[in-house]
Design a protein around this nucleic acid. Structure first.
Lengths: 127, 127
DNA sequence: AGAAAGCGTAACCCAACGGTTACGCATTAC
DNA sequence: GTAATGCGTAACCGTTGGGTTACGCTTTCT
């Protein structure tokens, strides 16, 4: 058990400036794909693929609204990654402050598995 | 001001399984380069370069000890990234819990700038 | 001094990634 | 029904990234 491959997914998704900017945009509410793409200088298909990465990593959820596609933030993975990071950054007695976060982590873990449902693998445990 | 490009550095560094495993190793105390490399199946130069990335991202500090090189964790960047993530994962009134973290962030920000000292740029603000 | 140990760097190769244009499919508008 | 809009995918291309082997420099051992 412990933290596993989804940290990779999440960290990988966040490790791109465009994708991070998209996430920041979505903080102020759901947006359509075109609306998002409109705010970037790069081509729309490029943004579309960034959105795909964000979807597959679970950071974002897409909801079909007519011929448009509304994107919304999913806080789960953020909390998971933050939880993983907390192992390293504990200025002074941090761990007990992360209880609520842990709860969030376990609550959303199962729901977030990608359709295909690749197995966990078990490697990269925290201990 | 606000979060900026060092999120990129940190996230990029963390977005690799080998590097994350190195970080986990170092949680239990400082280790030499060879000692770290010895625990991986990949070649030692490969590990050496991963260590370089970790060094440049500030997640790790190297201290020369004779002909060996001791690596130690630096909690600063972890806290920074966690702080950035906190904007998104706020199950319920999280922000005030991150004050101590914010302090840590500002305390270590300046010390961590890479020797070359590339300018901040100002983009990718949190607002 | 000479040999060995410990690390990092350089040069090289292939896979992955992010960008582009062309295209296809569904949904709304006329 | 036909045109236009919205969005995703496919095919392609240059760049980046992580792996390898070969090499060089410094520090310890004998």
């Amino acid at each position: 058990m412990g933290y596993a491959f989804w940290v990779d997914e999440t960290a990988g998704a966040i490790a791109d400036p465009v994708r991070r900017e998209i996430l920041v945009m979505l903080r102020s509410g759901p947006m359509s794909a075109g609306e998002i793409a409109g705010r970037f200088a790069i081509s729309r298909p490029a943004v579309s693929r960034h959105l795909r990465v964000l979807r597959e990593s679970g950071l974002v959820r897409a909801e079909l609204a007519g011929r448009r596609r509304l994107y919304t933030l999913d806080p789960g993975p953020f909390a998971e990654l933050a939880g993983w990071l907390a192992q390293f950054a504990r200025p002074s007695g941090w761990e007990h402050r992360l209880d609520a976060l842990e709860t969030e982590v376990h609550r959303t873990r199962r729901e977030r598995r990608r359709p295909g449902g690749a197995a966990d693998g078990g490697k990269e445990s925290t201990a």
